[in-house]
Computed example of a mutant assay.
Amino acid sequence: MLLEALSSPYVYSNVLFIIAGISFPIHLFGEYCILFKTPKVMKSVKWSLFDVHLWSSLMDLFLSFFVQPLAFFPVMAEFPMGVLNRIGMKTDVLMCSGVLIALLVLVSIIKMFKNRYYILFSMHTCWRYIRYSFLTMNYVLTILFVITVYVEIPEDQEFARSVLFKNNPELLQYDIPESPILVIAWSNFRMIYRQLLFTALFLSELIVFTVLIRLNMQKAISEIRSSASCKTFKIHRNFMKSLNMQIAVPIVVICIPSFFGLAVPFLQGNTQGAINFIYIIVSTHGALSTLIMVYLQKSYREAVVQIVGCNRKMEENIRTVMPKAF
C-alpha cells in the first residue's frame, strides 16, 4: 500500500516537500552549533566538519526541495519535480549538479578524516606535502565523473525518448508535459561500473584513514604520561567515537540504499514505489547526521538545553505575570 502510493509522482513530491520543511531548521541549527559551539580544543576540525555538514545539507535540499528526481531503473532516465525545474532550469544541468553534490559529500568526509590525521599525527612528516596532491586527485576524479555523465546524455532527446517508450511503454504514464523524462544514457553498465569504482575508492580511503587514526591514537595515549596531555587525547578520542557514528549515518543511509536500488528492478512488485522510497530515505541523511552530531557532542547538547531552558523560563514568566494582569 505504501509503495503503491509512493509510485505516484505527486505523492512522492509532496512527501519530499514535507521532509524539506522538517530538515531545513535542523540543518540551520547544526550550522549554528558547528560555528559557535564547537569547543576550542576541537577548533582544528571545525571547518572540515562544517564542510561535511554544508554539502550534506545541500544534498538533502537538492533531493527534497530543489530537484526531487524521479528516477527509473534499470533504464537510465529521470525527470525532476522540484522548485528549480518549475522555474525553468534544464533537466540535464539539474541532474549533473545533483551528482556533483553527492560526490562532494563523499569527498568532504574523506577530507575531514584526512585533516584529523594530519593534525594529530603527521604535521611533521612527508604527508604534510602529499596531502594537497591527494585532495586534488579526489576533486579531479569527481569532476571527471560528472563530465563523463554529462557527455553520455544523448543530444537527440526526442529520438532517445521514442526508443525508451518503445522498449518501456509503462513509463509513458510518468511523462508529464511540464517535466519530460530525460534519457541519461543509452547503456547503464558503464555508469554503474564507474559508480561502483568511485564508491570502492571512497570506502577504501575512509577505511585507511580510520585505521591509521585509531592505531596512532592508541599508541600515543599509551606513551603519554602527562595527565594534561592524556586529558587532551581523551577529548580527541571521544570526539573520534562520536565522529565515526556521525559519519556512519550517510554511509548507511546513502550507500546501502544505493546498492539496494541497483537490485530493485530485478525484484517483484511495485519497483517504482521502492525506488522512490529509497530516494526519500537518502534525502533524510543530512538531518539524521545532524541530530546524531548534536546528541553526541556535549557542547552542542548544552546549546539545546540552553534554548529549551530559555523557552521554559519565558513560559514560567508568562504564567507568573498573567494572573497578576487579570
Score class of each variant (00 low, 15 high):
F202T: 03
R116A: 01
S57L: 03
I281Y: 00
I192R: 07
K37A: 10
T38L: 09
C230H: 10
S226T: 07
I221V: 11
I281E: 01
G21T: 15
N14W: 03
S187L: 09
L182Y: 11
K166S: 12
Y32I: 06
K37L: 04
I22C: 09
Y150W: 13
M217R: 09
Y117L: 13
K234I: 00
I109H: 09
I110Q: 13
F79V: 02
T290V: 05
L94T: 01
Y279I: 09
L164N: 05
I147Q: 11
Y279F: 13
G88A: 09
L100E: 12
F62V: 02
E302G: 05
V163H: 04
L267R: 00
S162F: 04
I119V: 08
V52D: 00
H27C: 01
Q272D: 06
K40I: 02
Y117P: 08
N188K: 14
H124D: 12
S108F: 12
R301V: 13
A274V: 00
C126F: 14
V321E: 15
K241C: 03
K114T: 10
F62N: 04
V252K: 03
Y150E: 05
R116Q: 09
E170Q: 12
E158G: 03
I153M: 08
V41I: 01
F65G: 03
V208G: 07
M191T: 10
Y132Q: 04
M1L: 10
L104R: 14
L171Q: 08
I147D: 13
P154H: 08
T148P: 05
R237E: 08
A77H: 03
K37R: 14
F209V: 14
K324Q: 15
Q173G: 06
D175H: 15
Y117E: 10
K231V: 01
S229W: 00
Q173F: 07
A287Q: 08
S229F: 03
I192F: 04
L296N: 09
A303V: 13
I318C: 10
S56K: 00
R194K: 07
S226R: 01
R131N: 11
G21Q: 09
N115E: 10
M76D: 10
F239T: 00
V93H: 06
Q218T: 07
H236C: 02
Q218I: 06
W186A: 13
L212M: 14
A102V: 05
F239K: 02
T290L: 04
N138C: 14
L291N: 13
I19R: 06
I18E: 07
F36H: 15
S48V: 00
R225A: 05
S56L: 08
I119S: 08
R237Q: 04
T148A: 13
Q306G: 11
A228D: 05
T320V: 12
A185S: 15
M245E: 01
Q68H: 06
S226N: 06
I181R: 09
V252C: 04
W127F: 14
A303M: 12
L196C: 04
K298F: 12
Y129A: 11
P257F: 01
V11S: 07
C126N: 15
L288A: 15
E78M: 12
G286Y: 11
N276S: 08
P177M: 06
V253K: 02
E178H: 11
C310R: 15
V208M: 13
L103T: 14
A71F: 04
I26N: 02
F24Q: 07
E4V: 02
I153S: 03
N138G: 05
K40M: 00
E223F: 09
L172H: 13
L58I: 12
H285I: 00
